[in-house]
Design a protein around this nucleic acid. Structure first.
Lengths: 197, 197
DNA sequence: AGAAAATCATACTATTGAGTTTGATTTTTT
DNA sequence: AAAAAATCAAACTCAATAGTATGATTTTCT
């Protein structure tokens, strides 16, 4: 592969990086192409060589975000101590969903999917869709549940209880509060499915 | 009160009605003042006589929305049969939070509170903030819980499990699914607090 | 070295939309 | 009926911004 191809790839990524930051912080409408070009250290002309329009840049960027999203809370499910695995996963899950990065992304998706529902497909085509599936497998294997989907859904919903407040402008919970909430929700789940640690 | 004052009040409301619809369906940035004026059957000039700027119209409209929001699921808590009260409330709560009206409002608030967190205060200064408080009272009186806040939060969070999907563009659940989900979440709650129907 | 592709710098077009201005018309008050 | 307040109709200013055009410069390939 020649240097031209390499550079193309680098530029593409530089543009999508800048686009991601601006779309996240400003939203689709207010993010502007001149500034995306500037942040990417590239001419607007070049942006348009790679992406024919703002909306197509947006779609490509969403997909890019889905692919490059870094969650590590999944790893906790490998822990051999089942209760420990659940508690650690829970804390990581809550922390991630309250992180500024994720909240901005969520805001963006929620706002735009109102007008163009198909847009979020791009994001989820690669991304976090399978968290539920992975959890269900864990519940089936480790907790011996024959119908794990329901408890999984209830549990993750409980874990997200703190998010609405933050989304609507309430102060970010402290680490202490996050920790405690994750524990309470998880204990509640375990009691509900009669699991003995 | 003279006719002028009456008319002022009517016009103000007509403008905010139109503004509400447009802000909800288009979002703050894309909603435009010419169209708001047109929908309100009023001149743009008149809009500006009542509201000095778009942002101030927006704030006033949010407050107006908070005040005029019609939820009726609260009434179910008066039902003397406690389990019945919970189940009916649950269904009404889920239905409301999945209604197109509420989803659009939520989208709007989530999108805008990212840039101006204080903006949602206007909405919640009157509105649904106290659902939690009312529920806590119910849990304390009817279920004899000494610390009701935690279960209330977990329960409402479980009830909202279906919302994320819809927010991100998944198909609206059927009435059947809503009903079933509300029942399951409520049963899970009751089991968790060892309540015997 | 010289051709070809990509990028740069910059200016331009065209549209949209917030907020203003002006002067005529209607409605309410006294 | 006449003064005063509110509204209308319509044109205008001004800034922002998506997307295009042009011609010079740089980078890569052969």
């Amino acid at each position: 592969m020649g240097k031209i191809e390499e550079n193309k790839e680098r530029k593409r990524r530089a543009i999508m990086n800048a686009a991601r930051d601006l779309f996240r912080s400003e939203g689709f409408v207010l993010a502007n192409m001149d500034r995306i070009a500037a942040e990417a250290q590239v001419t607007k002309q070049t942006v348009y060589r790679y992406f024919p329009s703002k909306i197509e840049l947006f779609e490509a960027t969403l997909k890019f975000m889905g692919e490059s999203s870094e969650e590590h809370f999944m790893d906790h499910l490998e822990n051999p101590d089942t209760a420990e695995a659940l508690h650690r996963f829970a804390r990581g899950f809550v922390q991630f969903h309250l992180s500024e990065e994720h909240l901005e992304t969520f805001r963006l998706l929620v706002a735009e999917s109102g007008k163009a529902p198909e847009i979020t497909k791009a994001f989820f085509s690669v991304g976090p869709e399978d968290t539920g599936a992975r959890l269900s497998r864990f519940f089936a294997e480790r907790l011996k549940l024959s119908a794990p989907d329901q408890p999984v859904r209830l549990w993750t919903a409980m874990l997200l209880a703190l998010r609405d407040g933050v989304l609507l402008g309430r102060a970010q919970p402290t680490d202490r509060e996050i920790e405690e909430h994750a524990r309470i929700a998880t204990d509640f789940l375990l009691a509900g499915i009669s699991f003995e640690g």
